[in-house]
């Protein structure tokens, strides 16, 4: 079931949470809405769910207009950030709840509920109350509860952010494999870019109620379209460059070779791990000499800050993996990177 969103606009008082937002969610895909707090991602999810009503725009599921359908009749499943299991009901009763609301016959609903608990590997916990289960178990029951009535769309509102780091890592894989197994169209809201990169088929980066970029995790990571996406995905070197009369790209006093998408851009970005460090230039397309100003040791990686000779006011970060060669501050090094690693960024 593909979901089409068109021209969605929603304000809270004077704050515009969503402005004229248009987007298509392909069938059976796992889509992440990613952005900082206040970017409108949760509002967008809640408008899709029907918990908020947009002022303008439409939501269509396989060409059926859902904009005026009350949330209880949309047949969407939803998992909330935390503590949304009914505390007075056992895990099984929680999963049964949606089936009772939809008037399923008794034998069918019990077998369906047990099937769902089995899917999240909690069949043996069926008679426990939420307060007797860990946070991770509760969120798995919440998934089972959301999926039990066979929803057409699964909505996840930061389902992992209240959990401990190790549980979170485990559940990322589990949620993703359940989604693939059922092939259910899924939308997840998150502010954690690594979560989005790991789980999603498609990422929608939002900022100030607008879409900044839509793409696969690989595209978003390697080729952010603009400065905001580059900054938000993190660890991006952003270079202010000039364009010479002949079209050459000038980083300070040195000319760079770059791919076609960097042409004519004022801003170029490069990932710190795309830069190789060496004493003498390597044959990679670009080579800049510079001086190490700072070394940060972060366990499995080192981050060097290097002041390039050609543009001393624009230091670049470089990531090194493994401790085979660790430069020290004030060492002279050469930075090498390929033309295709440079991407053009709009403001």
């Amino acid at each position: 079931m593909a979901l089409q969103i068109e021209g969605l606009t929603k304000s809270f008082g004077k704050v515009k949470a969503l402005s004229d937002l248009t987007l298509t969610i392909p069938e059976s895909s796992f889509t992440c809405f990613l952005g900082p707090s206040g970017c409108g991602k949760t509002t967008l999810l809640r408008v899709i769910a029907g918990l908020e009503v947009a002022e303008e725009g439409s939501i269509r599921l396989s060409d059926r207009d859902m904009s005026r359908t009350p949330p209880a009749e949309r047949n969407f499943g939803m998992v909330f950030q935390s503590y949304s299991l009914f505390p007075n009901l056992t895990a099984l009763q929680n999963v049964l709840y949606g089936l009772e609301c939809r008037g399923w016959a008794k034998p069918e609903r019990t077998s369906r509920a047990m099937e769902m608990l089995d899917l999240v590997q909690l069949a043996d916990q069926a008679h426990k109350l939420p307060s007797q289960m860990s946070g991770g178990q509760q969120q798995r029951v919440a998934i089972a509860r959301a999926l039990a009535p066979r929803p057409t769309l699964l909505l996840l509102d930061e389902p992992l952010s209240a959990l401990d780091a190790n549980v979170r890592a485990e559940l990322r894989g589990e949620f993703r494999s359940i989604q693939k197994e059922l092939a259910i169209t899924t939308i997840m809201v998150t502010h954690d870019q690594s979560e989005a990169l790991e789980m999603a088929d498609r990422i929608v980066v939002l900022n100030g109620g607008r879409i900044e970029q839509v793409g696969s995790p690989f595209e978003i990571y390697t080729h952010p379209k603009n400065r905001f996406v580059a900054d938000f995905i993190g660890n991006f070197n952003v270079m202010q460059v000039g364009v010479a009369a002949n079209g050459a790209i000038e980083f300070g006093s040195q000319t760079l070779t770059a791919g076609p998408d960097a042409e004519g851009m004022d801003l170029l970005g490069i990932r710190p791990e795309a830069i190789s460090i060496s004493p003498e230039p390597l044959d990679m397309g670009n080579a800049l000499f510079g001086e190490v100003t700072k070394v940060r040791f972060l366990g499995n990686i080192q981050v060097l800050t290097v002041r390039p000779d050609c543009a001393p006011d624009q230091p670049l970060d470089v990531q090194l993996h493994g401790p085979e060669y660790i430069p020290q501050p004030r060492d002279r090094v050469c930075l090498n990177f390929g033309a295709e690693s440079l991407c053009g960024l709009s403001q």
């Binding site: 949330p71 209880a72 909330f80 949304s84 299991l85 709840y97």
Partner: peptide
């Protein structure tokens, strides 16, 4: 009582009375 309970119930198809 968390407002999430109301919303969770609504999303599961429950009425206000239920």
């Amino acid at each position: 009582i968390s407002a999430t309970f109301d919303e969770a119930s609504t999303m599961l198809g429950g009425s206000q009375l239920r």
